[in-house]
Design a protein around this nucleic acid. Structure first.
Length: 154
DNA sequence: GCCAACGTTGGC
DNA sequence: GCCAACGTTGGC
């Protein structure tokens, strides 16, 4: 099983929005960066992902989601009215794929970027500023849950 | 709101 | 294929 981190701007889609979605799940659409794309393709069912708030007052990891379906062709790439439309993508050869992720929990105590800098200074999140999907190491995963005060961590 | 980092585009 | 120009991300 692998661990991931997904960035979202809380003004556009936050973890409450995910919780309130049908089935408490959503397709992770709209990523148009090749490195992130490769990570999205590598996200497999049962993998877990942190939900991170970017571009906001207090950037932080706020909760946990689980991958429940993998590598679904991103519908927005075929839609000329979508801002994510990709004229080079075809139904036969899609270029962009989504995992479906499900809400697991919102941390009672979110873990701010500032704390991550102190405790886990080597995290990819702190150096790869523009990568919206990233892998998380197991020891980082465990440590962050501890910082968030999660009991029965997995 | 500023601006550094960095990915993408397009002319040559 | 290089690289300047440009656009976006995202912390601060």
């Amino acid at each position: 099983m692998k661990y991931w981190l997904l960035k979202s701007e809380p003004d556009s889609f936050n973890i409450e929005d995910l919780k309130n979605s049908p089935g408490q799940s959503t397709l992770w659409e709209g990523v148009r960066n090749y490195q992130a794309r490769n990570y999205l393709l590598a996200m497999k069912k049962n993998d877990l992902a942190f939900f991170y708030y970017s571009n906001c007052k207090e950037p932080a990891i706020v909760g946990i989601t689980e991958v429940i379906a993998e590598a679904i062709a991103d519908a927005t790439q075929f839609d000329p009215r979508s801002k994510y439309f990709d004229p080079k993508a075809t139904i036969e050869k899609p270029r962009w794929f989504n995992p479906r992720i499900k809400f697991i929990q919102t941390f009672k105590k979110s873990v701010p970027r500032g704390v991550l800098k102190e405790v886990l200074p080597d995290m990819l999140l702190l150096s790869k500023t523009r990568l919206s999907v990233q892998p998380v190491q197991k020891h980082e995963w465990i440590q962050i849950q501890r910082l968030a005060g999660v009991k029965n961590a997995k």
